[in-house]
């Protein structure tokens, strides 16, 4: 069973590509982290999966269904960016609305969560804190009993405590109801904690996708005296290269151990891995240029 499958999926706004040639096959049961710079296409991909947008080209299915179809809507939950709620409606009104709109609505679970969160059912959504509003939106998303929950930057506006509480609620729900989750985030530390599958989107394209552990296992940072990355053995695929006048630092993808003794071989943190792919293809030369000082800092 796949949670999300796309084939050469593309979305353009006029001539501007928001998502290009996106091919993904994500098995159900994962908690997927979608990362990348602003404008990379994260929101577009989530909106396509939620059925809020139609593709310009290519194909997309969620849980084997067409996004936005009646059967998909019943199984897919979507919490849009900014965890929207209805400002003038009360907390209890939100739950009533959820019950009316969702055939599989779990009223007991919704009320139980609201009680555990300490939210006053009579309070209007606009009177809640950002963290409480996010928790209310998440409660609506979970009580719908979806098989796939899509979350667009759910924790971006939250303080560290509210963020942690939000992710705790989400992870508990994942254990209880065997949810698949796709969430976008700028916070790699959160992604490392809660996700087991990673998608890096840059410039409307998927740069990297796969189970997080496998990705971390198959990448190495090589540092040593300066040399040409073209000399790398065939099984080591260069991701980025960065040079000073004496030293080379290469990020390579390889399934075999690196035996060349002239390299110092290190694992990459998830953050360094993500950054390496954000500058994929670029070779950064920090050797002092002939004119003027070079102020670029090698990360």
């Amino acid at each position: 069973m796949t949670a999300l499958q796309t084939q050469h999926l593309a979305k353009r706004y006029g001539r501007r590509p928001a998502l290009s040639d996106c091919t993904l096959d994500i098995p159900a049961g994962h908690i997927v982290g979608l990362v990348g710079p602003n404008g990379a296409g994260k929101t577009t991909l989530l909106n396509l999966a939620a059925g809020q947008l139609t593709p310009t080209a290519g194909e997309i299915t969620v849980l084997g269904e067409e996004p936005g179809s009646k059967s998909a809507l019943a199984k897919v939950g979507f919490v849009a960016q900014g965890t929207p709620t209805y400002g003038t409606l009360g907390v209890a009104d939100h739950l009533r609305l959820g019950a009316r709109m969702n055939p599989r609505w779990d009223a007991d679970m919704a009320h139980d969560r609201i009680r555990r969160l300490g939210l006053d059912p009579a309070m209007q959504a606009r009177q809640l804190s950002a963290g409480q509003r996010a928790q209310l939106a998440l409660t609506l998303g979970i009580a719908k009993r979806p098989e796939l929950l899509l979350l667009d930057e759910p924790v971006a506006a939250l303080d560290p405590l509210a963020r942690r509480e939000f992710l705790q609620t989400l992870m508990e729900a994942a254990v209880e109801s065997e949810l698949s989750v796709v969430l976008s985030s700028h916070l790699v530390s959160d992604v490392e904690r809660v996700c087991d599958y990673l998608i890096v989107l840059v410039d409307s394209r998927v740069r990297l996708a796969g189970p997080l552990d496998e990705l971390l296992e198959s990448h190495r940072l090589l540092t040593g005296s300066r040399r040409d990355p073209a000399e790398l053995p065939a099984e080591q695929r260069l991701v980025t290269a960065s040079h000073t006048d004496r030293q080379s630092s290469l990020v390579v993808r390889t399934d075999a151990p690196v035996h060349d003794p002239s390299w110092t071989v290190n694992r990459l943190s998830l953050e360094d891995l993500v950054i390496a792919y954000m500058r994929d293809g670029a070779v950064h030369d920090h050797a002092a240029p002939a004119t003027g000082p070079n102020l670029k800092v090698l990360r």
Partner: peptide, 17 residues
């Protein structure tokens, strides 16, 4: 697993692994 997940806000598969 559920206790660890609830306490740390961590992926359940991580705990299982």
């Amino acid at each position: 697993v559920k206790e660890v997940v609830a306490q740390l806000a961590i992926n359940p598969n991580t705990v299982l692994k």
